[in-house]
Every structure is written in structure tokens, then in C-alpha cells.
Design a protein around this nucleic acid. Structure first.
Lengths: 355, 355
DNA sequence: CGTTTCGATCGAATCGTTTCGACTAGGCTA
DNA sequence: TAGCCTAGTCGAAACGATTCGATCGAAACG
């Protein structure tokens, strides 16, 4: 059988049709199932296909003719693996998968949107979802727009012709901060998500804020500072436990009077790191230090605490993105969505220590 | 500008060529850069393209003509998100990304290979990597073969015309078990990875083994039983900490004389669960119970221990898979690779308790 | 029994590129 | 000055399907 396979170049619909003694159009109808075909004819065509080892219409030819590929692009900023290390993105992916349903073939994940070497416009996709892109995505969006490819962006700066799936990041952060203020805290510190693609650790200055395009980070920061305008903030290189711990170590290395009584972390992973560092430094959470997270990710046994955090509807975000994509593909215009986070009070925040 | 965009249907290379006053072939040369084009001509074409808001050649048409899409398919068994929740798969993905280099557009991730509803043959890909597929993948492979699409499988049952990237699962497990035997253990229990897609928890019987197609699980099991032929084994529904804990709870709920003195877990996540359950039951690790893992994943702070485990070269696996894919696409035949695990002795195994 | 209708089939045009071979006009070598 | 090579350009033939409109019996209808 191998010789046959290598002898004949590659079976095509025309070959199958010829062998079955029907026209190409009829053979096409058999495979696409969109026209009436006599049972006998269908069988003949299928038999011919089997005999020639034909595996069905070529996807690229089909795409060209039909004008659609059945593939949705998911554009990420980091490397693939790094993007998927963030539990929030996984939940998002779950939602996208759910929302897309059975109709689509798969997701084409395209890493490093900011890499000029990668030509987003050359990707065979019907629509694109921008996933956690903090960089300036304008060029990428422009390229997709030229292709008439609908774009849905998740938590990105608002752009024209891009359906935005957003979170009330600022408002939610403000509510979290207010919770701390109500508990009597005055001196708080903030551990932020990355501010830029360079991802250097360090204190957040006005200059760095001005230079940053990290929408989510900035919004959450603004929300916290709506309540605590002077709160010091340090930025992390990524949403990871070790980063949170590392930054907290610096923030907590102060005499009692100057040390923050609460730390606002912009993600749960960072918050867990903060808690670990605090406990390692001999501080009691929440007795000596309150810790607030963001995300509401299930962190199985990472700490003995129940994290006080802003629970975001991550899966819902994915579903909304998928719905928007489907709407756009159907010709309707996908509606922008603003989802709300909910403050879940756990055991990591408490009254400010009387000092 | 919006009216223009909607007025004209969509710019094509032909339109650009016409406007630039050159032939389509010349315009094509400008964009593909594979022929000599006078600088002046090039500029004229690019200017026309800009004027028409043309974003470059259509990917599907290009794919059809060129016969390749620039996309590699990654076929997983679970939902996307679930696949990527396994840290091993992420490391693998890292390796694939590294190995593929800059040439490729992206990875088309295709979930649920066993779902008959999804037509693998309809995916526009140049090659496929089978990732952690425990089910019977024969139909999928057959479909791809008909398409003349090279297939690389990671830790799957050997198949003809499929490049295998494999691990010495059986031998490694045997070495791990021998380590336990040398420590004086006789009564051990095994916590296995899933045995089948149904994923029901429970004791591993001969019947279930016979019915299972989960290559990796079976190999690791066989390796452990090479040393401890009568070891009882329970299968998990997934490689997760909570699963490990849940199963260990049952395994350890026995009088001291019958309780295993060591548990072999088929993944580090399971092993961590086992350790947690043991400590919750008041057992000392490794004093009362030794625990052996598999994978060598970095588990930041999950336990206070250093897990004794079989460290597998996960990233290397990905790189090898990528190399095989590239080789196959270059017309050479990708070589099968067998990678070796290394036993790393940590603090979770110790001498069997004298009883 | 003439006409309409419908199921089944086919031919031909089309989707938007890439690429092969041919052609022209100069610049070189001999 | 004849002959050759090369850079630059072009026409036309793929690539492998889908789909529109036409055709042709046979069944259904009045």
C-alpha cells in the first residue's frame, strides 16, 4: 500500500470524481452535504474516495473558496507557555472554548504580538481575540483591520473597531481599598502587575505610569489610589507567587511605625507571595498585616488562609469574548461587555493594628 | 475613510497591481520578495497598496498556492485549558516554541482528539503534534496520514508512520521502585495517572489494564511492578494535588501492619497530594511513609519537602518534537527520540520503618 | 395528455495567490 | 560588432475546492 501512496501524487476531488464517474461538482456535494445527491451516487463517490485514499476536501482550498477558515486567533503577549501559566488566562480559555461551541475547528495561538518579526496579517484566521496584551497593540489591530478581520480585546485600552470585553478594574480596586480603609488602615502599599513589556521590578513612579500602556495594571492602581492617593506601589515582573514574596520582603523591611499595615496585591498569586513573605518575617496575617488580592482564583492549599480578594468572572469573560466573535462573524456587531468583580471577604484582612 | 473601506469590497493583489500599473506577477514579487524588482517599481506597488489599504497577500490563497500554511497543529485530549493546567505540558510547550523558532506562525491547538465530531482532517495545518493523548488515536492518525500530514506523537503507543518522542517511563519507574526497595520497603502502593478517558477513580485491576490505552500510565505502572509485582494501585482522574490526597486517604486508612510504607505516585502533583494527606493523617514523611513522585516539576512551596522524584526532560521533549516536525517538513524523516529520566533523591523517601 | 415541479447532475466561473517560462533591453565579454 | 548574460517584467497556468445557473428526466398535477 505504501507504493501506491507514493506513486500517486495526492488524490484530489477531481480524481475521486473521475473515478466515480461523476462531475466534480457532484463529488463536492457529497462531501459538503449541501445538495441533494442520490444515495447510489454518494456511495460510488465515497467508494472512489476510499479506493484513492482521499481524506476529504483540502482545507486551504476550501477556505479560499468559502472565504473563511474556521479558525479563531488568540493573540498573546508572552510566549505561549507563559501566557498559560496564568490561571486567569486558563479560565478565560475555558470560557472561550465553551462560548465558541462546536462550530470552530480550533484556536490558533499566536504569541508575542509585539514582535515585529511575526506577521499577524499572514495568519489564516477569521477573527482574533487579544489576550492580556499590555503593549501597544495598535499596529497589530491595524493589520487585522486591513484584512477585515474582527478583533475582540480583553481588558485592553479601548480602541476603535475593537470589541472590548472589560472588567471594572478601577471600581473594583477602589471597593477593595475602601474595605481596608473601613478596617482602619491608613498606611498601605501596592504590589502591581507588570507595567511594561520590559518588566523591570521597582517602585512605580509618575514617569513610569506615564510611559506605561498596561491598561489593567494602571486601572487597578488608579482604583487603589482613589482611596489611598499616596500609597507606595512596587511593580512585579509577572503574576507569580515568588514575585509577590520578593517585593513584599522589601516593602515589609521597615520599622513598625513606617511599615504598611495592609498590602494590596493586583493578583491572587502576588497576594499569596506577600502572605508567605509576611509570615516568614514573623508577621501575623491579618493581625499585623492585612492582604488583599485580585482575581478570585482557586489556590488549592497555597496558604492556610482564605484570601480576601476581588473575584472576577474570568470564565464569563471568555464566554463574552466568544460571543462577540461569533456575533461579528455573523455580520452583527459584537457588543462590548463590562463585567463586574465582587469583593469576597476572607480571613486575610482585619482591623488595622492599634499602634 | 470608513466609507471607502465599505465601498470597495476588499483590495486584492490584482487591484494593487492595476493601480500601480504593473502586472500581478510583479506585484506578487514585491510582497514575497523572491524575485528582482526595481526599487522604483517596488515603491509604486507599495504606494498603491497603501492607497488601497491592502494588507498583504491573502493567507488562504497563499497557502493554497504554496501548499503549506505555516501552522503546526497541537492535538490534545482534554479541553485546552485542562491540558495546559498540567505543568508538564507547559514545559513541553516551551520546548516546542523554542524548537520551532521564528519560522512558524503559531500553533493551532485542537482539543479533544477523541471527539468524533471534530474533523481533524479539516484543520489547515502542515504537521501535527499529538500531546498527551492516551486514547486510541489511530483514527486521527489515519486521517492525518491521508492528508500526507506528518505526525509526531509524544509518549504515545508506537505507531507506524508516526515519529515518536518517548520517555523511558518503564525503566525510570523501575529505578524509582528499586530505590525504595533498597531502603527496605516491601509494602508499597501506587497512585497512577488516568487509565482511560472515562477517568473513573478506583483500584487498578487486570481487566482495567487490559482495556486501557493510556501508554504512559501503563508503562510507569509496569516499571513499578517490575520491582513490586503485587503492589496495589489506584488510578486518579487527573494529575492533580487534590486527587493525590483523596486517593492517599483511602490507601492510608489501614492498620499499621497493612498500611503501605511507601507510595509511588505517577506525577509530582499526585505526590504532593499524597504527602498532604499523610501529614493530615498524622504520619511523618519520610519517617512513617516514603513518597516518590514523577516529573521533576518545580513546585514552589507546595510542601516543605524536597520531593524524591524522577526528573523528566520536559522542555527537551518539546524541542525534540519541534525538531522532528521541522525535519519532516523539510522532507527528511524525523528521528524518533527516547529521552531518559533521572532519579533525584530528595527528602521524601527514607528507610522503611522498622516494625 | 400537456404542463409544472422537483430531484439529480453537470459545466463553468471564481476565490487570490504564486510560479514557470518567455520576453525585452541593456551591459559585458570576446 | 556579434553573442551572452542578467535584471526586470509580464502572461498564463496552476493550486483544489465551492457554487451558480442550466439541463434533463420523471413524477405530480389539473
Amino acid at each position: 500500500m505504501d507504493d501506491r501512496a507514493s506513486a500517486h501524487p495526492r488524490p484530489t476531488l477531481a480524481g475521486v470524481a473521475a473515478r466515480a464517474g461523476v462531475s466534480v461538482s457532484t463529488a463536492s456535494l457529497v462531501f459538503s452535504g449541501r445538495g441533494p445527491v442520490a444515495a447510489a451516487t454518494r456511495d460510488r463517490v465515497l467508494a472512489a474516495a476510499a479506493a484513492l485514499d482521499y481524506g476529504g476536501p483540502d482545507p486551504t482550498a476550501r477556505s479560499l473558496r468559502r472565504g473563511s477558515t474556521g479558525v479563531i486567533g488568540v493573540v498573546t503577549e508572552d510566549s505561549l507557555a507563559d501566557s498559560f501559566r496564568d490561571p486567569m488566562n486558563l479560565a478565560l480559555l475555558d470560557g472561550i472554548g465553551e462560548g465558541l461551541g462546536e462550530e470552530r475547528l480550533g484556536l490558533l495561538v499566536i504569541p508575542r504580538v509585539s514582535d515585529p518579526g511575526i506577521d499577524l496579517a499572514a495568519a489564516p484566521i477569521d477573527a482574533a481575540i487579544l489576550l492580556g496584551c499590555t503593549t501597544d497593540v495598535a499596529p497589530a489591530v491595524a493589520a487585522l483591520r486591513r484584512r477585515r478581520i474582527p478583533v475582540v480585546a480583553i481588558e485592553a485600552v479601548p480602541m476603535q473597531d475593537v470589541v472590548a470585553i472589560d472588567l471594572d478594574n478601577r471600581d473594583a480596586s477602589r471597593r477593595g481599598a475602601e474595605h481596608l480603609r473601613e478596617l482602619g488602615h491608613h498606611r498601605i502599599a501596592i504590589v502591581t502587575l507588570p507595567l511594561d513589556t520590559a518588566r523591570s521590578r521597582g517602585e512605580v513612579t509618575a514617569a513610569r505610569i506615564a510611559a506605561s500602556a498596561a491598561h489593567t495594571t494602571l486601572e487597578r492602581l488608579a482604583g487603589a489610589r482613589d482611596v489611598f492617593p499616596d500609597a507606595v506601589a512596587h511593580t512585579a515582573t509577572g503574576s507569580r507567587v515568588d514575585e509577590g514574596a520578593r517585593i513584599a520582603r522589601d516593602l515589609l523591611d521597615l520599622p513598625v511605625g513606617e511599615r504598611p499595615t495592609a498590602i494590596v496585591a493586583q493578583s491572587d498569586l502576588l497576594a499569596v507571595g506577600v502572605i508567605r513573605a509576611a509570615e516568614l518575617a514573623g508577621l501575623d496575617v491579618p493581625g499585623d498585616l492585612s492582604v488583599l488580592g485580585f482575581d478570585g482564583v482557586r489556590l488549592e492549599g497555597a496558604t492556610a488562609h482564605v484570601l480576601t480578594t476581588l473575584v472576577q468572572p474570568a470564565t464569563e469573560k471568555g464566554r463574552a469574548a466568544a460571543a462577540a466573535v461569533l456575533a461579528e462573524l455573523a455580520g452583527e456587531s459584537g457588543r462590548a461587555v463590562l463585567l463586574r468583580c465582587e469583593l469576597r471577604i476572607g480571613t486575610t484582612t482585619g482591623p488595622a493594628p492599634a499602634s
